[in-house]
Simulated scan of single mutants.
Amino acid sequence: MSKIHPTAVIEPGAQIHETAEIAPYALVGAHVTIGAGTTIGSHTVVEGHTTIGEGNVIGHFASIGGRPQDMKYRGEPTKLVIGDRNTIREFTTIHTGTVQDAGVTTIGDDNWIMAYVHIGHDCYLGSNIVMSSNAQLAGHVQIGDHAIIGGMSGVHQFVRIGASSFLGGASALVQDIPPFVIAAGNKAEPHGINVEGLRRRGFSAEAISALRTAYRVLYKNGLTLDEAKVQLRELQHQGGDGDKHVKALTDFVDASTRGIIR
């Protein structure tokens, strides 16, 4: 039997696994699904067409699955999908998607989302991401696996943040951060490769060296972006452990529509 406190309000139609826990004064809407072992904190509202996976811990006073803050929204049944084993701390707000995009906001697995974070409509977060307190994402933002977003930072809509990158605290980000890159400032600028983060993840010295070379090509050699792209493609074929990572960085830059931080 579900561990639902008698003061919690569960609307008819909600699907709650028998091992989930719902704390006092929480509200769970009619179109919500909550997986095994997930805990919903007191006074938290989970609404909308929201699916939450297994083993998540959602803190007190969070707002999960609320209507998107988009003036074009007309009540369409858009979605929020949250994966497994995420920690989502108190006062976090995460909104559903809009029909102007894919119609779904997506949170992957094993993310650490601290207090007062906002994740806007149609955002896509991968897995193993850290978002520090008061970090704010506008709509349509994409974040790759293992990225770290510093506290009190703000991210413009449609920006992409590459895998294993690092955005420093109190930064304003208006263009894309390539994978593996450190960025900080208002407006955020590049500050090297996220070497310590890559070492912690087990990247080899050879791979880190290759990424440092790619960073110099992109930012330090006085090349135009088109010239840098040519050299980056050449670096993908050195036959070493870093080739696939340089390719990931190059592919990200090629796909950027807002442009990368410079």
Rank of each mutant, 00 (worst) to 15 (best):
T39A: 10
G259P: 00
D254G: 12
N134R: 07
H49I: 08
R85V: 01
V174C: 01
L223S: 12
V99H: 07
G120F: 06
G150L: 08
I261K: 03
Q142G: 04
I148Y: 13
E76T: 03
S165H: 06
G168F: 12
G259T: 05
A183K: 04
P77T: 12
S165W: 11
G108I: 09
I143W: 11
I10H: 01
E18P: 00
A188Q: 12
D251M: 05
T7Q: 07
M1L: 03
V181L: 02
T33F: 14
Y219E: 05
E47M: 02
T44D: 00
T93R: 03
A214H: 13
D84V: 15
G169E: 00
Y73S: 09
H31G: 08
S127T: 06
V230A: 01
T106I: 13
L232E: 03
S204N: 02
G154P: 02
K187H: 03
A184W: 10
G169M: 03
R233M: 04
S171W: 15
R212I: 14
S133F: 05
F61L: 07
T7H: 09
A210S: 14
Y124Q: 14
S2Y: 11
K220T: 10
A36W: 04
L235C: 06
R212G: 06
V174H: 14
V45E: 02
R262H: 15
G29Y: 15
I52K: 12
V99T: 15
D226N: 13
Q175T: 01
L27I: 15
I149W: 07
G144N: 01
G55P: 08
H49N: 15
P77V: 06
A14Y: 09
E189N: 10
I148Q: 07
I88V: 04
A205N: 15
K220D: 14
V159G: 02
Y215H: 09
F252G: 06
A147T: 12
H140M: 08
V195Y: 04
L235I: 09
D109I: 04
Q15A: 11
T50N: 05
K72R: 15
G202C: 10
V57F: 14
R201Q: 13
G197D: 04
A26S: 14
Q238M: 12
S171I: 00
D70W: 04
G66A: 05
E21C: 02
T106S: 00
D70G: 02
T98G: 04
A184I: 12
